[in-house]
Write a protein that binds this DNA or RNA. Structure first.
Lengths: 268, 268
DNA sequence: CGCTTCATTGATCAATCTCAACTCGCGTGG
DNA sequence: CCACGCGAGTTGAGATTGATCAATGAAGCG
C-alpha cells in the first residue's frame, strides 16, 4: 500500500476532492476526517471518526494488491479507478469503475476479498479506513449500517446487470451501455462537463477489460460509433452527439432467435 | 404467486425437505415454522417466527414473477430453481441456481428487485417470508443480521466470479466450471448421490442461459466432454468420471495473447 | 531523441450462432 | 393400442462475431 499522506492543493484537485466528498458515502456517514466533514460532524453532533489514512497514487498504479492482507477499505476521493480480477494466465476482468465517492467494495467492510485488485486509472486520491474499526463502529450505529447495506445491495444489482450484459449482449451493445452508464453515474455526481460531455480517462483496453472484448475490437466498434456520428472523442473526454442513436445501439438486437423465443413464449 | 399450502409426504420429498432445512439460512436463524425448526427454537429459547407461507410449484412454473410486487422473499425447501433476468426481446440470463436452503436473493430482504424472475426447474417446495416483518425482525437481532450480511456478501462474490467467467472464459471453460461448481455446492449440502455422482435436473437450455451460450452449442460441448470421458449423463444425473480432466478444461487456456500480456506485465 | 503506450487498420482464423432437419421419449386424446 | 404433438437433444452446413497477428502511426514523456 502506498505510504504517502498529504493532500495536494492545485485548484482542480481541490475541486475534484470536494466533488468527491459531496457524494461520498464515508462522508455522509461521518467517517471521514477531511475538513468539510469535520464541520459536518460538528453540526450533526456526531463525532465518530474512524482512523484512516490518506493516499495519492499515480495513474496505472495499484490501490489494492492481490497479495495485500486487505485490512483496510479504500474510498476514492478524486480520480477514476477500476476494481478487477486477474486470471493466472493474464486475462483480466473489470468488475466496476470507481468514481469519486465510491467505496472500493462495500463487502470489503466485512470480509477481505482475495483476488480483488484495484488499479488507478487516472491519478487518484483515496482514503483507507481500517476494516475492523469500521465494522465495530458500524454495528453500533444502525443508521450507518442501513446506508452501507444499501450500498451493498446497489452493488449487487449493478453486478447483476453486468452479468446480463456479458452473457447476453453483443459487443456493440456492451460498449454503448458502458458509455451511457458512465454518463449516468457522472450526471448523478454533477460531474458532467456539459449536458452531453464528460471526462473520459478510460483507455480502450479498460473498455475491453470491462466488456469482455479485445482492445482491437473495441477500437473497431468505437470507430464505427464515431463514423455513425453517435459520439465524439477529444482528448480524454467524450461528447454524446446522438443520445437516441446510442441508446438504440445499446438495446436493440435484430436477432431471429430472440424473436422466435419471444413468440414461442407469448404463445405459451 | 401460487396459493397452495400443504406439504406432500412421499418419502423422497420428506427427505429432500429435511436436507434443505439442515442447511437453510431461514432455519438457522429460527425464522421457519416447520416442525424441526419449532423444536430447534424451543431448545435455543428463541421463539421468533416470521409469518410465512408454504408453497409447492410444478417444474417450469414461476416462483417470483416479474410483475409481482415482491413483498415476500422465497426460500427453497426442496428442488432446484433458477433466478434470472429477462430481456424484452426474449433473451434470458440465469444469475444463479437455487438449491434447497437458498434464499432467492438476500438483497430481496431489503428492496424488491424489479426484473428478477425465479423459475422452478424441478418441482419445488418453498416458503415465502413477508419482507417487511423480516426486515424489522432482523434489525432487532444483531446475530441474525450478521448472518444475512454474510449471505449477501457471499452472493456478491459469486456474482463477481460469474462476471469473470462470462467476460473472460470460453464456453468450454464456463460449462466445466458450472458443473464443478454445482458439484461443490451439493457436496456442502451432503446432497451428492455418491462420491462423484449427483442429481442434475438442468436441461441444456438452463446451462445455456447460465453460461451465456446457445443450447445447440452447449449440446456440442457436452457431447465432447462425454466423448472425452470426463463426465457421464444418465437420466437426470451426472457422474464425474475424470475430475482432474474436467478441472483442466475449466481452467486451462492456451491463449497466445494471454501469455503475451503475462510476460509484458511480469517484465514491468 | 528515443522509448513506450495507445490507437488504427487489414488479413486471417476460431468460437459461437443460426438454421434446419432429424431422433427419441413421453404423455395425451382418440 | 396408436397417432400425435411436444420438449429435449443431436448433428451438420453455413454465417457472424469477435479474436489473433502484424504493421503502422500518433502522442506523451524522460
Amino acid at each position: 500500500m502506498n505510504d504517502e499522506g498529504g493532500e495536494e492543493n492545485s485548484p482542480q484537485n481541490l475541486v475534484a476532492l470536494e466533488l468527491g466528498c459531496s457524494v461520498c458515502s464515508a462522508c455522509e456517514n461521518n467517517l471521514c476526517s477531511v475538513p468539510a466533514n469535520r464541520v459536518l460532524s460538528a453540526v450533526s453532533g456526531v463525532s465518530t471518526v474512524v482512523s484512516q489514512t490518506s493516499h495519492a497514487v499515480k495513474a496505472r498504479r495499484l490501490i489494492l494488491h492481490n497479495g495485500d492482507t486487505q485490512n483496510s477499505v479504500p474510498v476514492i476521493c478524486s480520480g477514476w479507478a477500476a476494481s478487477m480480477k486477474l486470471l493466472p494466465d493474464g486475462r483480466r476482468q473489470i468488475l466496476s469503475f470507481l468514481l469519486p465517492g465510491d467505496i472500493a467494495s462495500a463487502g470489503l467492510l466485512f470480509t477481505p476479498k482475495p483476488g480483488l485488485v484495484v488499479e488507478a486509472i487516472t491519478d487518484v486520491h483515496y482514503r483507507a479506513f481500517k476494516y475492523q474499526e469500521m465494522k465495530a463502529m458500524l454495528l453500533s450505529k444502525p443508521g450507518v449500517l442501513d446506508k452501507l447495506l444499501n450500498d451493498c445491495i446497489a452493488a449487487q444489482s449493478r453486478a447483476d446487470r453486468l452479468i446480463v450484459d456479458l452473457g447476453r449482449r453483443s459487443g456493440e451493445e456492451r460498449i454503448a451501455r458502458l458509455i451511457l452508464n458512465l454518463a449516468q453515474r457522472l450526471k448523478v455526481r454533477g460531474m458532467m462537463r456539459g449536458p452531453d460531455q464528460m471526462d473520459f480517462p478510460l483507455r480502450q483496453h479498460h473498455i475491453a477489460d470491462a466488456t469482455g472484448l479485445t482492445q482491437v475490437h473495441v477500437s473497431k466498434v468505437i470507430s464505427d460509433f464515431r463514423r455513425s456520428r453517435l459520439v465524439e472523442f477529444h482528448q480524454r473526454s467524450v461528447t454524446i452527439i446522438d443520445l437516441e442513436g446510442l441508446r438504440r445501439r445499446a438495446d436493440v438486437r435484430s436477432c431471429a432467435r430472440a424473436r422466435e423465443i419471444f413468440y414461442a413464449r407469448s404463445a405459451a
